[in-house]
Simulated scan of single mutants.
Amino acid sequence: MMTNLFSTFDPSTNIMNLPLNWMSTLMGFMLIPTMYWFIPSRFNIIWINIIMTLHKEFKTLLGPYNHKGSTMIFISLFSLILFNNFLGLFPYIYTSSSHMSMTLSLAMPLWMSFMIFGWINNTKHMFAHLVPQGTPPLLMPFMVCIETISNIIRPGTLAVRLAANMIAGHLLLTLLGNTGPMMMNPMMMSLLIMTQLLLLTLEFAVSIIQSYVFAILSTLYSSEVI
């Protein structure tokens, strides 16, 4: 029975002896969007530095003919693949970037748009690109065929490279993880856990490298049509 009307406001809420009265204060701070923070967090500073580094590198690769904001397309592409790869490292989460339907959906429209833009606006340049400089006249027909085939298979190589690299590491982790319940030796179990941790670290690096390679190659392909 309450002895005082204001006793309902006494700090007495707890679960498993953990005081939860001041959670509302912390939850309020956590719900404030980061865009309203006076000083950006370390994560924001790191991400801004990454974006600026990628912007400078893509701008250098595109050359003097790059348009304002053109690097943002490839930075967005890098970010999308990177976050998808990272999400796939968590247990029981499907890695969308390991499937060809996802990677081809990224590579094919980019390559097609570059080809349409190049052949409509820079037709002579695109024809000149089919014959490398210094090719003997006798080899020119063969070089045109080789360059045409290498140009056509570009979206496929982009898609297969990303999907294959993401599948390979995850498949190895799964196969090793399935052998764990059958091991009775504690020494072998410890060795398996250490191997899994090392492979997970490798997959973390592969996630970053493959997203970077996809974005860099897309940038190089776009620079050839200008």
Results as ranks from 00 to 15, higher is better:
residue 4 N to D: 15
residue 16 M to F: 02
residue 17 N to V: 02
residue 17 N to A: 06
residue 20 L to Q: 02
residue 23 M to P: 06
residue 35 M to C: 11
residue 35 M to W: 08
residue 36 Y to W: 01
residue 37 W to Q: 15
residue 37 W to I: 03
residue 38 F to T: 07
residue 42 R to I: 04
residue 44 N to D: 12
residue 44 N to C: 08
residue 45 I to D: 04
residue 48 I to V: 10
residue 49 N to I: 05
residue 50 I to K: 08
residue 51 I to Q: 09
residue 51 I to A: 09
residue 54 L to T: 09
residue 63 G to P: 07
residue 63 G to A: 02
residue 64 P to N: 04
residue 68 K to Q: 05
residue 73 I to K: 06
residue 75 I to P: 02
residue 81 I to H: 00
residue 83 F to W: 02
residue 86 F to H: 10
residue 88 G to R: 08
residue 88 G to Y: 03
residue 88 G to N: 09
residue 91 P to T: 14
residue 97 S to M: 02
residue 98 S to V: 03
residue 104 L to W: 00
residue 106 L to A: 00
residue 109 P to I: 01
residue 112 M to L: 15
residue 120 I to F: 12
residue 123 T to R: 15
residue 131 V to W: 02
residue 135 T to F: 01
residue 145 C to P: 05
residue 147 E to C: 14
residue 150 S to E: 10
residue 155 P to E: 00
residue 157 T to V: 08
residue 158 L to N: 00
residue 161 R to D: 06
residue 162 L to S: 06
residue 167 I to G: 00
residue 181 P to G: 08
residue 183 M to Q: 11
residue 185 N to S: 10
residue 190 S to G: 07
residue 191 L to D: 10
residue 193 I to N: 13
residue 194 M to I: 12
residue 195 T to D: 05
residue 198 L to I: 12
residue 201 T to G: 04
residue 207 S to T: 04
residue 213 V to F: 01
residue 217 L to G: 02
residue 217 L to S: 08
residue 224 E to R: 15
residue 224 E to P: 07
residue 226 I to C: 04
